[in-house]
Amino acid sequence: MIHSVSMLVVLYLFWLLLSGNFGAFLLSAGAGCAAAVVLIARRMDVADHEGHPIHLGLRALLSYWPWLVKEIVKSGWDVSRRILDPRLPVSPTLASFKPSQKTDVGLVIHANSITLTPGTLSVQVAQDGILVHALTREGAAALAGSEMDRRVSRLEDSP
């Protein structure tokens, strides 16, 4: 139920964002549309903790995202240096490692973070192992038991 309510709020904010008009008709039409979408989502059974993970919302926003942005900037700069280097010093490597997350949401966050960081790319994702394509050998070696793995696990364990 809490997921449906938060979904309704998010959808209504999205409506306000797109319309930018605050007349009585448009406000009520937005409420009607948001309610209809939430009803359809409940029928489709997608308004649950997986489709709408609010249980890790604020903590992720405050602790995980800034760290992830820092990592993205660091590795993005590294990849751009390699692209512009005339010798093109890349050593593409496939590596498989076992993530320590227990829930599907944590696994998806981990795999998405790996892909979002330039230089590493998750190719196949399963509970018993993530297959990662890395641009360099060092990038592939740093994956198993990485700080990202620990941080996502801590995020997932938080109440």
Binding site: V73, V79, I83, L84, P92, T115, L116, P118, L121
Partner: peptide, 23 residues
């Protein structure tokens, strides 16, 4: 864009494209 042209194969080109999409 340059990386998309210079990289040797498809999987390495994804890394180049992700520089555009993030940074």
């Amino acid at each position: 864009g340059i990386g998309l042209l210079r990289m040797p194969d498809f999987y390495t080109r994804i890394h180049a494209a992700s520089v555009t999409e993030t940074l």
